[in-house]
Structures are given as C-alpha cells and as structure tokens.
Simulated assay, not measured.
Amino acid sequence: MKGKTVVVLVNDPGNAGNDTTMFKGKAMTYYGRWMYKYEEAARQGAAGLLIIHDTKPAAYPWSVVQSSYSGAKLRNQTADKGASKCTIEGWITLDAAKKLFSAAGQDYEEAYTAANQKGFKARPLNLQVSTSITNKLRRQESKNVVAVLPGTTRPDEYIIYSAHWDHLGIGAPVAGDSIYNGAADNASGCAALLAIANAFQQAKEKPGRSIVFLAVTGEEQGLLGSMYYANHPLFPVRKTVADLNMDDLPNTGPMRDLTVIGYGQSELDEYARAAAQEQGRYIQPDQNADKGYFFRSDHFSFAHVGVPSLYASGTADSWTKGKAYMKKMSEEFEAQHYHQPSDEYNAQADYRGMEWDARLLYRVGSRLAAETTFPQWKPGSEFKAIRDKSLAQK
C-alpha cells in the first residue's frame, strides 16, 4: 500500500446483514471501526484512506460525518507529531464512490459484493489523484477533570465512573442554529456523574475502595481524553477494578430494560443484572451490535488496556409506552438530532429514566467498592489476555 490511496468500506465484511458467519456475525468488531482503518492504512504505508459512507453499516447518516469531521480535527500529541499517519484521511459519499468506480471502468455493486466474500483481495482502480491541502496547525490543551473519594479499607484499588464533557461546539448552522449543545450527548452523562459523586459523598457508609469520577475531553474527536488517561493513568491499571461509563442517558421516562453494550464480555454483566432486578427491570444485550457502539464511547479506552468496563442504560423498552415507541424515538433522534444543534435541553422531557440508570450504576459501584475480588473478562473476550497480564504484574 506504500504511497497509494486506499478506498475502503465502512464496518466489517458481511456486516450489511448478508453473512453472519464472518467475524462476530452482526456485531461489529474493532476492525470495522473507522479509527482502526486509519491506523492500519498508516501501518501499511498508505498515503491516503477514503472510507465509503453507507448509512446502514455506518449506523449514522452523512450529516453526522459532515458535522463531526468538517473543520479542524483534534488529535492526541505523539512523539512524531503525527508524521506516521496517512497524509489524507477522509470519507466520501456512496454516490461519489459509485462515480469513482465508474471512472475506473468497474461496477461498484459487483465490487461491493466481492469485498464481502472470504478470500477477497484488494483491487487496483488504476486511477491517480492529485490534490493539495493547506493546513494551519496549532497546539492546544484540553483537560480531563478528575475527582477522587478515597476508600476506607482498600484505598489503593479504584473504581472509575466516566462521562465525556465535550461535544462539537460551534459548527455549520442548521436552520440558523450553529451551537451544538450536546444535551443528551453528553450533558446527560455528566449530570449523572455529578449526582453519583454527590451520593457517594453523602452516604453514611463510605466505600472501601476509592471512587474516581472522571469527566473526559475529546470523546467526539475519537475518545481522545479517555484514551490519554488509559495510556497515562493517574492510578495503576492493574489496581483499577472497573470503569462504569455514562453516555447519552434516556430522557423518555423510566425503562424496563437495561441494555448492555458489549454484553457477554465481562462479569460486570452479572453486577448489572442484579442491580436491574432490584429495580424490577430486565437486562439484555445491545440490539444494534452491528452499529459498533462498544467502540464509540469512553469505556472502550479502558477495555483497550484490559479494564473491565460497563456501558449500560435503558434504551429499548419504555415502562409506559413499550418497545415500538422507543424504536421510533431512537430512530428519530439518530436521524434528526444526533450530532446536530437540535440536541438541546427539553424542559418537558421525562428524565426519570436517567435517574433510574444513575441509581443503578451507583448500586453497581457500591457493590464493587465493598468487595475484595476483581471482576474478570469472560473466556473468549479479546481483552482477557491484556487484563491477565496486567494483574500478573507486581
């Protein structure tokens, strides 16, 4: 790939729903994430990488790509100041991709079908691209915000509650509004983080293990703040019991379900199930695992270094209005409000579901803080070997 510009599909092979025998079936793997594709293209020496946007496997419309990736892009500082990355990283629309293949004398649909079959080999398009980009680089700092409640009996062991405080700021106007507020994504998680911190502080019985409240920056730019923390931890990774992450909590009232993103990965599923049952709720796996939510919030940064992580909330089954209503609301939010200025605070919304989730996560953290054991990754998890190696260190 050295010196070449690579054109790739979003998500994993077979993930369009046609072949569930490849990789993890309908569940996206890390290899299907755009972040991994950029990383691998750079490792292979590519000059550029263009990802073809397709709404279903991408799990969001083109408007999200526009709002998220237009304008300046932040990156964590590296020793080589980004020199090892591809010179060009970007997305193209599906229509643009079809025109590109047509110009190369190839049929896009045939190439798409072939690329979703085992044994596929990359094909040359025999096209050349010439472009010039003038970049103005600037370096700035953004902050993770950390507070710690020391444990009473095992203060050198840590439970992290995480939520990202950033959103997109001021961007391209939509219907005359250029302020991307991020009320659901993720002022909701920050509100829960503060409420849980307050509850631990006021509790009569203080936690045995230390509780870390971590508000991270740069999530919308690629999990930058949480990834930085995971690679430069204030507290040893091998002494970090778990991460409990909050992102985009419900404003549609109490939920019967507790949907666990990445269900089946770790023993934290059992902690979540017990807390849900105390509220009369049931636990279920992510119903949209093909959309790769496991890799799209800050818990993944902790999983990446081996820390068992729980990312769960009520999303699918309204206590009073049922599943069909929540499916409609979820689709409406994704199509009209996700990463848009219209993600605003709504005084008429029902925030009791957010409260229930915060209470549930407080219960999980309290139980973990009272124990002496560490929750484990389950056999088959790609993160188990990393954790086992970490815990074996002295």
Rank of each mutant, 00 (worst) to 15 (best):
V146H: 02
R352N: 14
T252S: 10
A96M: 12
K323T: 13
L9F: 10
A47C: 07
F235Y: 14
K26H: 03
M28Y: 00
D243W: 00
Y351K: 07
G306E: 03
K4R: 14
T315K: 10
R139G: 05
T372D: 14
L100C: 06
L244K: 01
P250V: 08
R238T: 05
Y293A: 03
N116L: 04
K136L: 06
N18T: 12
M326T: 05
S390C: 05
R359E: 13
A195I: 10
R209M: 04
D95S: 14
A172V: 13
P375T: 01
G218R: 06
S68I: 01
Y31P: 00
A96N: 14
K291I: 00
F213L: 08
S266R: 02
E157C: 04
D290T: 01
I88Q: 12
N15M: 12
N15G: 15
A27S: 11
N76H: 06
F200P: 01
A115K: 04
W165G: 02
Q77I: 09
E331N: 12
G208I: 00
S178R: 14
T131G: 13
D317E: 09
R273Q: 14
K204A: 15
G151S: 04
E371T: 08
Q140S: 08
A79H: 07
L361G: 03
A358W: 09
S330G: 15
I88L: 15
V8Y: 01
P57K: 03
S70D: 11
L258C: 05
P250K: 06
Y311D: 04
P150D: 04
N346V: 13
Y229F: 13
K73C: 02
M246R: 02
S102Q: 14
K204R: 09
V241K: 02
N126A: 10
I159L: 10
M1C: 07
S266I: 01
H167V: 03
A104S: 13
P57A: 03
G314D: 03
A96E: 15
Y311M: 07
A316Y: 07
E332M: 10
A83L: 13
K143T: 03
E371N: 09
T320L: 12
V307M: 01
L149M: 06
D80Y: 09
T20V: 07
A370M: 09
K204D: 12
T240A: 06
N15L: 12
T29S: 14
W377F: 15
V129Q: 11
K121W: 00
K389D: 11
N18A: 09
F295G: 02
I92F: 11
Y228R: 03
Y112P: 01
G306S: 02
D166L: 08
N15Y: 01
L360T: 13
A104C: 09
T259I: 08
A242K: 01
V260L: 14
Y158R: 01
R43H: 08
K291W: 09
D12H: 04
G225C: 07
S366P: 00
R138F: 12
D19R: 11
W377R: 02
S390T: 12
F294C: 00
E219C: 10
E278A: 15
T373V: 06
A324L: 13
G218P: 02
K378W: 03
G222E: 06
R75G: 00
